[in-house]
Design a protein around this nucleic acid. Structure first.
Lengths: 223, 223
DNA sequence: TCAGAAATTGTACGGCGTACAGAATTTGTA
DNA sequence: TACAAATTCTGTACGCCGTACAATTTCTGA
């Protein structure tokens, strides 16, 4: 488990941390959280279960590392382009994060299972603050707005993936909306009149449209 | 497991669904998610583990029922008082939900572990829509705003409880902010200058102040 | 060359959710 | 009033899980 700064005795490692994380992610995608066990990961990479403990001290560390990996590097694309309008840059980051995380529904839930204090999470917060200060916000307001945005992005994604119960990749957005519509159309209008009338809108809660609509209301609110 | 509409043969039940849920919640509070096992619940109420399956088909059903129970009845207090200003009513609901859920940190995480389609969740959505329409929003905007608010409330709470890793009741807000400050003050200013400068503000992300601040920005954005 | 560090395996433990069969209890009805 | 059927609960068991421990193998620097 020690970093193994090559130069010390001992056989060469058969794996890398990244191979383990890739296997964990693949299992998460195929079989959901239940499938991403230490034993499953070990089987997938072809070692005994306890060999994983050479690379990570325990399962929680695997999850932490996986979350960090999923957050990715935020300093790319439109978000990093200082010549674009700031709202556009934030929308680009939000869309990018949503795409990356929704692609791995099982993993998205892990995001909110522990403190977000990894370097990549910090880097995203740093860039958001920098951007908002550049947009004219006072430093304190920029920091608070940064957290508001993170809450919104992560909350949206978590609720979105929680809506689908099956493991495996999420169905298409259209399919998910459709199945939600069928559910919401059953709402009894006598007891929930507003919800029954809004069934079609509520079906689209998990859409990119709603996601961007909510984000824009927040951006309106902080500027 | 069948509702047991008294009148059919069989011994009387030794428990009620509610006793099981109470035991589950107590275990969740004492020992966190890991402690709230079917076996633990059964031990706490004094039956064999599999007796629980008389009341709920599986563990997921226990969790679903617990989540519903935790959501509580929203139609009370300031939120239900149609004579108060609408923003005040929403703030009252938000504060009420946060208090109720943060009191059971282990359970809060369960909220986003499945679709929020229970009757109590629907009732909250219904009342929010009604309120927002009364505030002058068009029905579609009211529905979208409702979801935005739910995302914010649940996302905030989930991130807040995820920040504390230990099971058991959350420390006081002041203690949590203090411990966050100590962590954030370690951020290296050379690599994350904005975050380092905002450490004190970031420490208060988990405060009622920040929670209400963010909520108000959203309310600003939707009106 | 070889001492000793590191990686990996075999084995084991306690805990989990839950399936299944049987015993015990209660009921409406014959 | 006796009994058949329905229901609750227990005993037991299975296959998972995370992970601790000791032994084995493979490598390196001295």
């Amino acid at each position: 488990m020690t970093p193994a700064g090559r130069g010390r005795p001992g056989p060469r490692r058969a794996l890398t941390e990244d191979e383990i994380l890739d296997a964990a992610l693949a299992l998460l995608d195929e079989a959901g959280p239940a499938g991403a066990s230490i034993r499953g990961i070990a089987a997938k990479v072809g070692v005994a279960p306890n060999a994983v403990y050479t690379y990570f001290p325990d399962k929680a560390a695997v999850v932490r590392a996986l979350v960090e990996k999923l957050l990715g590097d935020a300093d790319h694309g439109v978000f990093a382009d200082r010549d674009r309008p700031w709202r556009e840059r934030i929308e680009a980051l939000a869309i990018d994060l949503r795409e990356r995380l929704v692609a791995h529904p099982g993993a998205a839930a892990l995001l909110m299972s522990g403190p977000m204090d990894g370097p990549r999470a910090t880097a995203i917060g740093e860039q958001l603050q920098e951007l908002l200060i550049g947009a004219g916000l006072a430093p304190t307001a920029a920091a608070r707005s940064t957290y508001l945005l993170i809450v919104y992005v992560l909350g949206s994604i978590a609720l979105e993936v929680a809506d689908e119960s099956e493991p495996g990749p999420l169905p298409s957005e259209a399919a998910r909306i459709d199945s939600r519509r069928r559910v919401f159309e059953q709402i009894p209008a006598e007891v929930f009149p507003r919800s029954a009338a809004a069934a079609r809108t509520m079906a689209t809660y998990v859409s990119t449209d709603q996601y961007l609509w909510g984000l824009r209301r927040i951006l309106d609110g902080i500027s």
